[in-house]
Every structure is written in structure tokens, then in C-alpha cells.
Design a protein around this nucleic acid. Sequence first.
DNA 1: GACAGGAACGAACGGTCGTGCTTATTTAGC
DNA 2: GCTAAATAAGCACGACCGTTCGTTCCTGTC
Lengths: 199, 199
Amino acid sequence: MGKGEQTRDAILEQALTLASQVGLEGLTIGRLAGALDLSKSGLFAHFRSKEALQVQTLERAAARFEEVVVRPALGAARGEPRLRALFENWLRWPRIVPQPGGCIFVAASVELDDRPGPARDRLVRLQRDWLDVLAGAVRIAIQEGHFHRKVDPDQFAFELYGIMLVCHHASRLLRDPAAPERARRGFEALLARARAARA
Amino acid sequence: MGKGEQTRDAILEQALTLASQVGLEGLTIGRLAGALDLSKSGLFAHFRSKEALQVQTLERAAARFEEVVVRPALGAARGEPRLRALFENWLRWPRIVPQPGGCIFVAASVELDDRPGPARDRLVRLQRDWLDVLAGAVRIAIQEGHFHRKVDPDQFAFELYGIMLVCHHASRLLRDPAAPERARRGFEALLARARAARA
DNA sequence: GACAGGAACGAACGGTCGTGCTTATTTAGC
DNA sequence: GCTAAATAAGCACGACCGTTCGTTCCTGTC
């Protein structure tokens, strides 16, 4: 890894941390440079546009997400255990990959939902992929006989992500320490329903 | 209503619309003035600080929310019907009170979750109130015998708001037209569970 | 008809933003 | 250890930000 690549790496890591707090738009080149003891122009040269910086920050976040949320869960047994692992890893991930402002994808989702452009496009793809990962795990759980055949994997993923979002909301905005526990209760109810498959 | 008050009213209505798209921080005095054919300074005089403008925009949003979501639902029968009304009204409200960028509270929740100040304080209060309204409706549904006695109203409100948040996410970021239908399915499952009170 | 008050305006302030250019320094290959 | 290329810095730009100030316009009262 050359010197430039190394610097770029440090920049993106810091960008990830910063963007979690102030968003992708609030992520300012000057502030980012200041935090890294770099000049604005020196930092800017690595990307050549703010948009590129934003996209690459998302890319970096996605890589880390894969690394600390998705991949480790593949070590868990197929089906419900893997789904549990995905859920628990998601709860942890804003602390493991330091995001003092909470999950960057949640922040970016709200920020970019009305701003067309490459960053938005990339984010949409990433969020779809994440929902697909969840739905895929559900599908496997059905195959394994953990869940009832009538369970709709996409619907399950939808509702599960809802629990994650409200957990984020309750713990970050409302500073409710009970949020993860509430989320777990919701998750367990979702699992119970999938086993029985009343709906 | 005096002339000044009338103008202030128009400003706040426009601010609500604009803030739903670009957030409370992106809500710029210059842009707001431009949209209303006012001078920056003329508009500014009505508030005397951007922070005050933000808080009053939240206040205005809260008043409208009360008006089109909460109050009409009080016309529905106590218990489950009222809860349904609250849910359906929530789904509609970003269109009724024009918010082209989606629910302003969702946007502000993510934007302000790490920015201390009066705007954040006010928002926290408003979101707590909203969750309390939902939990209160659940409590009534228990009294009415619609729901099982073991149902935890706050937990129900938590999970219900999760469905609302993921619906917002799916329809706004992912542009998924099936989002409201999915949300309804999740809501129905929540209701079914509360009747049976398995958890 | 002079006057007072509220409402809006236009210009300007200091600051920060993203983005170019040009120059200096560091790094890597021989 | 020298050289060419990669990397960072310095400086300046135009645009927009929130905010202030002095002025003008309009309305209604004595």
C-alpha cells in the first residue's frame, strides 16, 4: 500500500466517523482536513469532488458493514441462528466501526431520499442488498424447517428492518437505554410468528 | 390576524414544505425568502435567529400533525378502531400537509439526534408525546377488551413506530410502491398478536 | 397634514463552503 | 543517490451562509 493509498484510507475512516455525526452533506472537506491535520487542497486532491468523497465514504462503510455484520454471521448455523447473528451484529456495529452519530446508512437514507445523484443511487443499492441478505436468511430458515413455509421473506425483512430503525431512533434521539432490549423483544415476537406462521 | 402575523404564517407553511425536503439545517433563510418572494432580511426579522425559525417550524409541524393525525382519530371508536385511524392518518399525513420530502419529524429525528439545542429538545418532546399517544390508544384497547391484558402498551407503540419508520424508508428512499401495503400487513400482525397476547 | 409604528427592502459584514491553479515536498524505481 | 512521479501545501476564486444596519414604504392617529 503506497503512501497515497494509506492516506486515503485514513481519510475515509475518519470520514465515516464524521459523517455518522453530521451526515454526508455536513461532512465538510475543511473539517475533515482539520481532523486529520491535512490541508483542504491536499485532501481534496484525493477525490477531486465532494460527490466522489461521499460515494467512496459510502463504499467504505459498506465494506466495513460486510466485514463486521454480514460475514461473521455466515459463521452461524444456517437458518434462525444466522438470522439472530445478523440482528445482534447490526445492533453492535455502530460501536465496532466507530460511528458516534449512529449508523451512517440510517442517516444517509433520510438525507439522500430526495437528492438524486450517484450517492443516492449507491445507497439505494446497498440498502436493497441488505434487505436481500435478511430475506435470504429467512428463506434459508424456511428451508431448514425453522420457519413455516407460508412466511414471506421480504415481508419479514421489511418488518425486521423496522425494528432496527425504531431501535436506532429510540436510542439515538430519545436516548432510551431500553431500546436494544425492546428491539430484541420485537425480534423474538417476529421469530415466534414465523415459526407459527399465522400471517 | 395582522399583516405581519399573516406573513409569518405563510413563511412557516413554506418552511414546513421546504424542510421536509432539505432538512431543518438545509432550510436556508435565503432559499426560503426566494420561494416566498421576500427579502432575506425581511424574512429574518420575523424570527431573529435561524434557531428560532427551526423551532417554530417544528412547532407548526406539530400543530398540523395534531390537526390531521391525532384529532380526527379521536372521532373513531375507542380501542382498536382508534388505533387503526391513527395508523392510517399517519400514512397519509405527509401528503395532506404538503411535505414533498416526507415526514418532517422523521427527517429531523435523524438530523438532530446528535445536535444539542432547543430544536432537538423540542423534537424529543414531540416524539415522546407521539409515542405516548400511541401507547395511550393501546391502553384503551386493553380496557375495551380488544387487546389482551398482558400487552405492553409502550412495547406495542415501539414496534408500531418501527413499522411506520420502515414504511417511510421503503417508500421514500427505495421508492417501493408496495411500502404502505407491507406496513399494513405488519400492523395487522401486530394487532393479531395483541389480541392473542402471545407476547 | 405631521407623525408614529410595523413591515419589508437592499447592501454589506465576516465566515465557510467546494473547487481550481501553482508550487513545494516526499516517495519510489533505477 | 538521482530522477521522475506521486503527494501535499498554499493561495485565491466565487457562491452562499446567518446576521446586522440604515432606509423606505404603507397604514392609521392625532
